[in-house]
Design a protein around this nucleic acid. Sequence first.
RNA 1: GGUGAGGUAGCUCAGCUGGUUAGAGCGUGGCACUCAUAAUGCCGAGGUCGAGGGUUCGAGUCCCUCCCUCACCA
Length: 689
Amino acid sequence: MTAKRRILVTSALPYANGPIHLGYLLEAVQTDVWVRFQRLRGHECHYVCADDTHGTPIMLKAQAEGISPEALIGAVHAEHRRDLADMLISLDNFGSTHSDETRAACNRAYLALRERGHIEKRVIRQAYDATAKMFLPDRYVKGNCPNCGAADQYGDSCEVCGATYSPSDLKNPLSVVSGTPPVERDSEHYFFRLSGFESRLKEWMAGGAVQRSVAHKLEEWFAQGLKDWDISRDAPYFGFEIPDAPGKFFYVWFDAPIGYLGSFAQLCAERKLAFDDFLSPDSRTELHHFIGKDILYFHALFWPAVLEGAGMRRPTGVHAHGFVTINGQKMSKSRGTFITARRYLEHFPAEYLRYYFAAKLGPGIDDLDFNLDEFATRLNSDVVGKLVNIASRCAGFIARTGGTLADALPEPALFAEFSAAGDTIGAAYEQRDYAGAIREIMALADRANQYIDQHKPWLIAKREDGAAEVRGVCTLGLNLFRSLMIFLKPVLPDMAAKAERFFREAPWNWQDAARPLLSQTIGAYEPLASRLDPAAVAQLVESPAPPAPPAAAKPAAKPAAASSPAATATATPATAAAAATPISIDQFASVDLRIARILAAERVEGADKLLKLRVDLGELGERQIFAGIRAAYEPATLVGRLTVVVANLAPRKMRFGVSEGMVLAAGPGGADVFLLSPDAGAAPGMRVK
RNA sequence: GGUGAGGUAGCUCAGCUGGUUAGAGCGUGGCACUCAUAAUGCCGAGGUCGAGGGUUCGAGUCCCUCCCUCACCA
């Protein structure tokens, strides 16, 4: 065992405008398993995280809901905290970037950067919404693509042709906030001079702080040249005001990683830890960040540079992971596969997901597919059928022979094989190759079952003098099980705790797997895990999304419309719910249903379920809508007919373009989808009420 | 479009610095067992390792070209 390490670990900050979902849980679980492993090995390991609370989206969402940003982030924080705790994420502190500690850390970092000449003021031109009286981030200006002319494109890039540009290049630009055309306005901004850090970043990267594939990605960015980073935003902005710069605020991405430090500062105050032990440039502690691969730029370039520029230490490691897909596809609200943490937890134990993720999680940045069938068979086979089965099949014999373990192992070599495997399993955990660790552990579980099968205690027990031998075999069996549970404790902390109680032992540490437990009177065996019903697992995605919690709705969406159980048409239809939650007449009125005439219909290249429709909504003009009705309708038969659409559904960008509404249809899906039709006399644009 | 990652048995994946008949789990077929949450054990079927070239005595493993998938683009 190596000397005791002192380690500070973080997960990326979840943004405070929505619920925690399966994708974030992957990261939380990855981090937590590593943290628990370090602690199990006897190291000092602190794990902090926080809500990421600042920025324009939060500000506008709070406005839309008629509450203060503080109220909004407060509600979300409580939800996040509960979700993570229920997922058995062993955070030492879960703070908020909207805290005194983070503000202090921001100011300190900023002033240090400024003092060392890393901050520069520049005047930039930016889109300004004169009606809403605010500057507009790129994503808050929409218009026609200057390159291909596609409608309704964001101000930074075109989803149709892929061109990138700035908001001022858009044709017919409109502010998303007020709907009025933006104007150009000058503003003084503060830039962090990232370009000065290239050589130091390269040296840091060469030291092995990131995965190799990530290093390749960073080299690409180096080759393009590092650009200085605009870290300021103009009022109104929900965030921290920059010192000596009234009306200027820190950009949310500046204070987000500093939120790690703010959260850690809170922990230091609470536990009497010395902050500088972990953050000073000559620190001998370790600093590890677990992140998604989408935010590499911030964590592998900006963040180490900011830390160094502000006179602090650099991260020991930045560990990126891939995304979670559901049954091979990107998580999607319209497909019903946007699984929130709460939704998962309402159905299944936290540890099942922890195990499943761990079993599939390697050290790389590949995406991880959450396959529902596999989830059930994997849990049932590995955890119940193999692992728990070992204890289950041995415990009864021990109970019948007096409830006490034998005082020697019949085959010490087999036990030694298990303890020896602890080294490779530990190395796999350390390298974040949890899949490798689990593979090894399950291979050992097979060995344990084989051992019991070969020695057949149920036959020996029939002999008059068989008691001692049976006890020996089952004592070894239980000890093999015990070693495996110790190895799995980072992944299955609750099951491990139950097993500790069963063996009547104090909480295990890693080294306990090296010595067998002998002559011990053990407790009565209780089932440690129960089987999953595959049908129940399927429900995780098949039923319609539950009513959105207060903080869960997308900024632009009208909640009643967004989660309507009738939302069958734009993608895989959801199974009809038995009864939907009652709504008021006002909520119904918020859904703008209109008669539409289908002007054109065509298949979508690369989508086997979708048809692209062009519809006429009378006074509302023409719209493009994607509908998941390809299996049910020949495009040609649709042209000219009338139907009903939701006209005020927030535009939804899909891989193939933007869908500007939803066609109403009934039916279970596939070929059994039936479009609604009005009686004769209805005309395009008429409101349905 | 640029870049990155990846394409190995029906499914999910291992295959380190190139070296005997390409591995595991799940699923599947057969047998055995009955201690165990219909759990477990044994035996078997199943792969021209995306395609085509090349280097080499020898290539999933190195090089080139192409095809496909996924992701990212501050």
